[in-house]
């Protein structure tokens, strides 16, 4: 099972229980809820006959496990359901909005990784006051809510300086320059916390790597300082940074939900918040499935990168 394909297969098999558990849990929660979807569609004034008819039509009078099975077979055939709110196909709605969320998340992840690791490394080598500053920065990055930071960025860079648009999204296919400009502030708001967390944790990873004997032996045998830092130590520390990055990607994924709302980006997060406030059950079920898929994808990527970096896993 040492090959990359083996790792992918194992991980995907391992992901099946997660996907089943998350979607089944959603079903159970909905079944437990007072009132139901039919009621939500028809409103309080519906006749009992109309209510029963709709329940039958939606399959709500079937036992829970049959409802779930029906939904699951639908999903396997590519049918994730239709929105209660406007009858739109759930998979279509999600497919339209996915690129926005992915651009935001991947952009924030790259910025957090590059800036965070650079700060972490500088802090590990310099130590002293700079090292303590990273601790403080990590705390502030944890504390400043991304949606509030987003508001401050709008005030400064959109309202006062006019460098970037305050809200809205331009698709990449329409104008790549405007696409980047429309994402700059949301990415910055989302990445701030990520930079702080990665800076602190990668600093710790670098300090651990620097303390290992191979560093002093390499130094004593004249390996250049640049190679020790940017090859030996960076690669050893990158194992832990990969794990940190995976966790951070999931945090950022959650963060997109609020940041999209601040900047009025038409992503999955705004879709989810709207579906939630409208009680659009099929839509939220579909979104749950997509988010669970993204969690699986992130974990899979982390495993692949980790195996690629670490000869011990590769050979095991």
């Amino acid at each position: 099972m040492g090959s990359p394909i083996g790792i992918i297969v194992t991980r995907l098999l391992g992901a099946i229980p997660l996907l089943l558990a998350v979607t089944a849990l959603t079903f159970v929660l909905i079944a437990l809820a007072p009132g139901d979807v039919a009621q939500a569609i028809l409103g309080p004034d519906a006749t009992p006959a109309a209510y029963d008819q709709l329940r039958e039509q939606l399959g709500l009078n079937l036992p829970l496990h049959e409802q779930y099975w029906g939904w699951l077979t639908g999903v396997l055939h590519g049918d994730v359901g239709t929105s209660l709110y406007n009858g739109e196909s759930v998979s279509h709605a999600i497919a339209q909005r996915l690129p926005v969320t992915l651009s935001l998340m991947v952009g924030a992840l790259i910025v957090s990784l590059v800036v965070g690791v650079a700060l972490g490394m500088a802090s590990a080598v310099r130590r002293g006051a700079f090292g303590r500053a990273i601790d403080m920065f990590a705390l502030i990055g944890f504390a400043v809510p991304s949606f509030w930071l987003g508001a401050q960025l709008i005030v400064l860079f959109a309202v006062q300086l006019g460098w970037f648009p305050a809200t809205g999204y331009v698709p990449l296919g329409v104008d790549s320059g405007e696409w980047a400009r429309s994402l700059a502030l949301p990415v910055a708001a989302l990445a701030f916390g990520g930079i702080a967390a990665i800076a602190k944790q990668s600093r710790d990873a670098f300090l651990d790597a620097l303390a290992q004997p191979f560093v002093s032996v390499a130094l004593a045998n004249g390996v250049s300082i640049g190679s020790i830092l940017f090859r030996h130590v960076l690669k050893v520390a990158s194992l832990r940074i990969t794990t940190i990055l995976g966790l951070q990607a999931l945090t950022l994924l959650g963060g997109t939900v609020v940041v999209e709302n601040v900047f009025s980006l038409p992503g999955l997060g705004t879709l989810a918040a709207n579906a939630t406030s409208r009680g659009d059950v099929p839509m939220i079920q579909g979104i749950v499935l997509y988010y669970a898929f993204m969690v699986v994808a992130v974990n899979l990527l982390v495993d692949i990168v980790y195996a690629w970096l670490n000869p011990r896993v590769r050979a095991a």
Partner: peptide, 20 residues
């Protein structure tokens, strides 16, 4: 492990869909 891998905010959204 399972709970760790759940998309937290979205699960809360599900709950809020049902209990507005």
């Amino acid at each position: 492990d399972l709970a760790f891998a759940m998309p937290t905010i979205i699960i809360i959204f599900v709950v809020l869909t049902i209990f507005p």
